[in-house]
Structure formats: structure tokens, C-alpha cells
């Protein structure tokens, strides 16, 4: 069971959280400007990487805040926790 360091509450068991899937998928500012394929890309297509992954979690049974997590999908090791809206570690910002 993962141990996730909620930025507001500290390290807590995974059972207090819910995973919200891939991070950094911004909703298009003008959906009408997208063709069906581009809209489908936003809606459904995912990187689903093997290895380093950036994903969103919410501390559902705690402070109910969302945040980003960088986690390895093979080892499950968490290498970073960072706020919503911030770029991943080492990628500008």
C-alpha cells in the first residue's frame, strides 16, 4: 500500500486518497477550435508510461485537496509531490 505525502496533511496511507489519472492534461481553451480527433485526444488518449509518470491524486478522506505526484509505475516509488498548476520537477516553471 502506497504511502503518499499529502502536501497539506503529510504522509498518509493510499486508502485515504483517490488517483485522478494522468496530470498536465489541460482542458482546451476553445474546444470548438478542435476537430473531432484533437478533441478525442484530449478526452481519451493517455501516455500510460511504463516508468516515470505524473499523475493527480486527491486526499479524498482527508483535506480533499488535489495535487500532483511523480511516481514510477514499475517500482511504485514516489519521487515528487507538487501542487496543481505547477510544472513537473525539472521542467521549467
Amino acid at each position: 500500500m502506497l504511502l503518499i505525502a499529502c502536501p497539506w496533511c503529510g504522509p498518509r496511507d493510499e486508502t485515504e486518497f483517490r488517483c485522478g489519472g494522468e496530470a498536465h492534461i489541460a482542458r482546451p481553451k476553445d474546444p470548438d477550435a478542435l476537430d473531432d480527433a484533437a478533441w478525442a485526444d484530449y478526452l481519451f488518449m493517455r501516455r500510460n508510461p511504463k516508468g516515470r509518470h505524473r499523475e493527480r491524486w486527491v486526499h479524498a478522506a482527508g483535506c480533499r485537496r488535489w495535487f500532483n505526484v511523480e511516481r514510477d509505475t514499475v517500482s511504485h516509488v514516489i519521487t515528487a509531490v507538487y501542487p496543481m498548476g505547477k510544472p513537473p520537477p525539472g521542467e521549467g516553471g
Binding site: 483517490r18 482542458r27 486527491v58 480533499r64 488535489w66 496543481m84
Partner: peptide, 13 residues
């Protein structure tokens, strides 16, 4: 409620 909070926090902070 989850849905509202998710959009507020992740997309429209």
C-alpha cells in the same frame, strides 16, 4: 461533490 471540487481545483483554480 467530487466532480465540482476536481474541476475547481485542477482546471479552474
Amino acid at each position: 461533490l467530487d466532480w465540482l471540487e476536481e474541476w475547481l481545483q485542477t482546471e479552474w483554480p
